[in-house]
Simulated scan of single mutants.
Amino acid sequence: AGVASRRASEELITAGRVRVNGRIVTELGTKVDPHKDRVEVDGRRLVAEKPVYYIMHKPREMVTTLDDPQGRATIADLLHQIPERVVPVGRLDYHTSGALLATNDGDMIDALLRPVAGVPKIYAVKFQGHLDVEELDALRNGVRLDDGYRTNKAEAFVLRQEQNHTWVQLTLTEGKNRQIHRMGDAIHRRVMRLARQSFAGISIDDLRPGEYRELKRDELQQLKKKFLNPYRRAREASKGE
């Protein structure tokens, strides 16, 4: 019903906050029919929602949280325009613009955010100065971050060079905190601008900052085939262990 991700939902169940047909349920994996059974969380009845999936173009200078104590623009300003109640899949930094998925499908969120999924994320990165072959190879082969972590292999190629900058298309399959900025630090190149062009193969295409659209049928099918179905198979397999 779009209340929480699967992990958060399990925590609600084990905490005794979920009732099915008036009875408290604490056993994970309890089967319910959302169209027949009465399910309540903290006394509030849940109504089954149709899963929906959107791609959004997050603007720069917006936080990917629903509120901000500093009074900055938040992703909630965009989510409120969508008829259904959805949440973003992951985050983008305040100064980073680009592709951000939003959905009410908790399983899909978990499937896309688990590290082993290796979800591809394509960025356009503006580096200070002109990158040479050695620096590009370092980005491709992995660099050592400030905490000692070595990044996975990535795809990197030059889009264009300007007077004092180089635009690089960088494809990552992991998502450490401020990873691209820290990768730039590792090769002594400051990241001047950062935009995510696509997430999990879903591109923002011609969407302007602040705009969104529903996923196309073939896009959704690919997400299910590559990420959701393997996630569900792995989950079922773990139950049998």
Rank of each mutant, 00 (worst) to 15 (best):
residue 2 G to F: 03
residue 3 V to Q: 04
residue 6 R to D: 10
residue 9 S to P: 00
residue 9 S to W: 12
residue 12 L to D: 08
residue 14 T to G: 06
residue 18 V to I: 14
residue 24 I to K: 14
residue 24 I to E: 07
residue 25 V to S: 01
residue 26 T to S: 13
residue 27 E to L: 08
residue 27 E to F: 01
residue 29 G to V: 10
residue 29 G to A: 11
residue 31 K to C: 06
residue 33 D to R: 12
residue 33 D to F: 04
residue 35 H to T: 10
residue 37 D to N: 12
residue 39 V to E: 07
residue 40 E to F: 08
residue 40 E to W: 09
residue 41 V to A: 05
residue 41 V to N: 05
residue 44 R to I: 11
residue 53 Y to W: 13
residue 58 K to R: 13
residue 59 P to N: 11
residue 60 R to Q: 15
residue 61 E to Y: 15
residue 62 M to H: 12
residue 65 T to Q: 14
residue 66 L to D: 00
residue 67 D to V: 04
residue 70 Q to Y: 12
residue 71 G to I: 12
residue 72 R to L: 11
residue 72 R to H: 14
residue 73 A to I: 00
residue 74 T to Q: 13
residue 78 L to P: 05
residue 80 H to Y: 09
residue 80 H to V: 10
residue 81 Q to H: 11
residue 81 Q to G: 01
residue 82 I to Y: 02
residue 82 I to M: 05
residue 83 P to E: 08
residue 84 E to V: 03
residue 84 E to H: 14
residue 84 E to D: 14
residue 85 R to I: 10
residue 88 P to M: 02
residue 90 G to K: 03
residue 91 R to A: 09
residue 94 Y to V: 09
residue 94 Y to R: 12
residue 95 H to S: 10
residue 95 H to N: 12
residue 97 S to N: 03
residue 99 A to T: 10
residue 102 A to V: 04
residue 102 A to D: 05
residue 104 N to R: 06
residue 107 D to Q: 13
residue 108 M to V: 05
residue 111 A to G: 08
residue 112 L to M: 06
residue 114 R to A: 04
residue 117 A to Y: 05
residue 118 G to N: 14
residue 120 P to L: 02
residue 120 P to A: 13
residue 125 V to Y: 01
residue 125 V to R: 02
residue 129 G to T: 08
residue 130 H to T: 08
residue 134 E to H: 13
residue 134 E to N: 15
residue 136 L to K: 05
residue 140 R to K: 15
residue 143 V to R: 02
residue 144 R to T: 15
residue 145 L to Y: 05
residue 148 G to S: 00
residue 156 A to K: 02
residue 157 F to L: 11
residue 158 V to N: 01
residue 161 Q to G: 03
residue 162 E to Y: 05
residue 166 T to C: 10
residue 166 T to M: 10
residue 169 Q to M: 11
residue 174 E to S: 13
residue 177 N to A: 02
residue 177 N to C: 01
residue 178 R to D: 04
residue 178 R to E: 07
residue 178 R to I: 00
residue 181 H to T: 01
residue 181 H to D: 06
residue 184 G to Y: 06
residue 187 I to M: 11
residue 187 I to C: 11
residue 188 H to K: 14
residue 191 V to Q: 02
residue 193 R to D: 14
residue 194 L to N: 10
residue 195 A to M: 13
residue 199 F to R: 04
residue 200 A to S: 00
residue 203 S to F: 02
residue 205 D to N: 14
residue 207 L to W: 08
residue 208 R to T: 06
residue 208 R to Q: 15
residue 209 P to A: 03
residue 212 Y to K: 06
residue 215 L to E: 11
residue 219 E to N: 08
residue 221 Q to L: 11
residue 221 Q to A: 15
residue 222 Q to T: 13
residue 223 L to N: 07
residue 224 K to N: 12
residue 231 Y to P: 00
residue 231 Y to Q: 00
residue 231 Y to S: 00
residue 236 E to I: 01
residue 239 K to C: 02
residue 241 E to T: 07
